[in-house]
């Protein structure tokens, strides 16, 4: 991911190109459906219905054609956590409660992951900007400022990561490899000291 030397930022993304219905749906509708599902699934108490929903969610993964390699990277940890909490729930409550938790959360996590792999980062950013548009009467929230901030962050993540690796190496050479202060303090100071230059550069281009 970020570790790749020459890879662009989009290497960071989980997005999978494709032409399924999920790919073609507008971003807002995907998030609206996801939120509706997360309310709806908690209203269902019948395990049989929830089992059908889980089967449908698994069918969705097959339909979107998420490669197995990606599946492992994306699902393993969230699903493990769901399993852990389901067992926890079965233990403190009863088996039925554990199964309810497992079916609901697994379905939701799978559907949410399908939304993640079928939504481009650019589309999501545009969605956020549109979402903020009605709020732009608040002086604090300007859609332009929001997209500037998000893209600035994206621009600097690989750079700060590389700076962190460099500092780590330099400190290891000094025998400081198990001292968190030796890494984090210079990382923060060196990064924040650039804020003046960066904001001057933005002002010189007259963002406002």
């Amino acid at each position: 991911m970020v570790q790749k030397e020459d890879g662009g930022l989009m290497d960071l993304s989980f997005y999978l190109p494709g032409s399924s219905v999920l790919h073609r749906m507008p971003t807002w509708s995907k998030f609206f459906l996801l939120i509706s599902f997360s309310i709806l699934f908690y209203a269902i108490e019948d395990l049989r219905i929830l089992a059908v929903i889980l089967a449908a969610a698994i069918a969705l993964v097959v339909y979107v054609r998420v490669p197995v390699r990606r599946l492992k990277a994306m699902f393993l940890l969230p699903l493990f956590m769901v399993l852990l909490f389901s067992i926890f729930s079965a233990f403190v409550n009863d088996l039925n409660a554990g199964l309810l938790t497992f079916f609901r959360l697994t379905s939701l996590v799978i559907i949410a992951a399908c939304v993640t792999v079928t939504t481009r980062i650019e589309d999501f950013m545009a969605f956020i900007e549109n979402l903020l548009l009605p709020l732009s009467f608040i002086p604090f929230i300007k859609p332009k400022t929001v997209s500037l901030t998000l893209s600035l962050t994206l621009r600097f993540i690989p750079e700060i990561f590389k700076l962190g690796m460099d500092i780590k190496e330099a400190q290891a050479a000094r025998g400081l490899n198990s001292n968190p202060l030796a890494l984090i303090v210079p990382l923060i100071v060196l990064t924040l000291k650039r804020a003046d230059d960066i904001s001057d550069a933005i002002d010189a281009r007259m963002l406002d």
Binding site: M1, V2, T145, L148, T149, L150, L152, T153, L154, F156, I157, E159, I160, F161, L163, G164, M165, K168, N177, S178, P180, L183, I184, L187, I188, T191, L192, R194, A195, D196, I198, S199, I202, D203, L207
Partner: peptide, 25 residues
């Protein structure tokens, strides 16, 4: 502008700290 830059840089620091290998203490 400088506040925006501070916010963006610190968001990037939080992200970079998650990507860096865990630190043994």
């Amino acid at each position: 502008t400088k506040d925006i830059v501070f916010i963006a840089l610190f968001a990037a620091i939080i992200a970079a700290l998650g990507l860096l290998p865990a630190i043994p203490v």
